[in-house]
């Protein structure tokens, strides 16, 4: 078996819409080891969420995975039948969504919902499952779990609901958890709780986590490695600390620069990326970021830059990567 838990190769997901074909994910490659936390960042339309859903085969019509390989423990998930995927979902790979209200069934008690997951994916007895449910609820920080088993989702606060969702995701001890904007709907103090919890649980259970988010600050606090996506493609990948300190792709640099800081000197104007992301229906001929890029040259407008290795563990798809000497503005 390979050293990677997950290896994604040249993944392509398209949506056939009336106005044309949208390449929401266009040739994405990345890998993930057990115990690792990988961040997938980008803005809306970047393809980060579709990537997450593609991994689990949760792409509905008019969307379709059109190419590539998703090697999970050496086996290509794209070759699995829907029946086999159902067994993998939840047991091997589970997912945490942005809105806890929509991922929980409002008509079932939370105890019942966790029990369902356990009954499906483990061979525990009914008493064993109950013990495991209490253990899980305790694990995700729900006080007095015995009293909470028979509660319905609406009786919980947003943060508590997301804890329940995490408990369900962890129930069958999956090897990989994909969290799609898990804290975006939550308040900052609750977000801090949930992030800390997820980090600890990944460590404790020895699983791997893919954190899909728009929030670079969250990524910087949580992840080991980051993949930055723009218009369906990965533009840069690097260990988190290095990416934050010295981004190489101009998009990453612009994104980092446009985040206002909570400490340090206040600048009168925020550095901003000019313009807006092109529509996925009509991407420019060369690099998708070229129209907004301060470093763009004639070549960038003509030729799509290939992904290349810049240094160990760092790669970027750019003809003129930002030099490492200069630090990003506003850092410190």
């Amino acid at each position: 078996m390979s050293e990677y838990l997950l290896e994604v190769k040249n993944l392509k997901t398209c949506f056939e819409l009336f106005r044309g074909t949208v390449k929401a994910v266009d040739g994405v490659d990345f890998t993930l080891k057990t115990g690792e936390i990988l961040g997938i960042v980008g803005e809306s339309g970047g393809g980060k969420s579709v990537t997450g859903f593609s991994l689990l085969g949760l792409i509905d019509a008019p969307g379709r995975i059109t190419g590539g390989e998703i090697l999970f423990r050496g086996e290509d998930l794209l070759k699995k039948s829907e029946e086999e995927m159902r067994r993998i979902r939840g047991k091997e790979i589970s997912m945490i969504f942005q809105d806890p209200m929509t991922s929980l069934n409002p008509l079932q008690t939370i105890g019942r919902q966790i029990d369902e997951m356990l009954a499906l994916h483990t061979d525990l007895s009914s008493a064993g499952r109950r013990a495991r449910i209490l253990e899980l609820l305790n694990e995700v920080g729900i006080p007095t779990p015995e009293d909470r088993l028979d509660c319905y989702p609406h009786q919980f606060s947003g943060g508590m609901r997301q804890r329940v969702v995490i408990a369900i995701a962890l129930a069958a001890n999956p090897r990989l958890i994909i969290a799609d904007e898990p804290t975006t709907a939550l308040d900052v103090t609750v977000q801090a709780q949930i992030l800390k919890l997820m980090e600890n649980l990944v460590k404790k259970f020895g699983s791997a986590l893919i954190l899909v988010t728009h929030d670079l600050a969250v990524v910087s606090e949580m992840t080991h490695r980051v993949v930055v996506m723009y218009c369906g493609k990965i533009v840069e990948e690097a260990p988190t600390a290095e990416l934050i300190r010295a981004p190489r792709h101009p998009y990453t640099k612009g994104l980092l620069g446009s985040i206002p800081r909570i400490t340090g000197v206040r600048t009168p104007r925020l550095p901003q990326i000019p313009g807006m992301a092109p529509h996925l229906f009509d991407l420019p001929k060369g690099c998708s970021f070229a129209p907004r890029c301060g470093y763009a040259t004639e070549r960038c407008r003509e030729e799509v830059p290939a992904m290349r290795e810049l240094s160990a563990g760092r790669r970027a798809a750019c003809h003129n990567p930002v030099s490492t000497e200069k630090r990003t503005a506003g850092n410190g």
């Binding site: 609750v190 600050a217 909570i262 400490t263």
Partner: peptide, 23 residues
């Protein structure tokens, strides 16, 4: 204090212990 400590930032070295409980 808790609000400032909980806000994720790009350049924090050690994250503070998050606030417990709900509003």
């Amino acid at each position: 204090k808790a609000l400032l400590a909980a806000a994720p930032t790009l350049d924090r070295i050690v994250a503070a212990e998050p606030l417990k409980g709900d509003v």
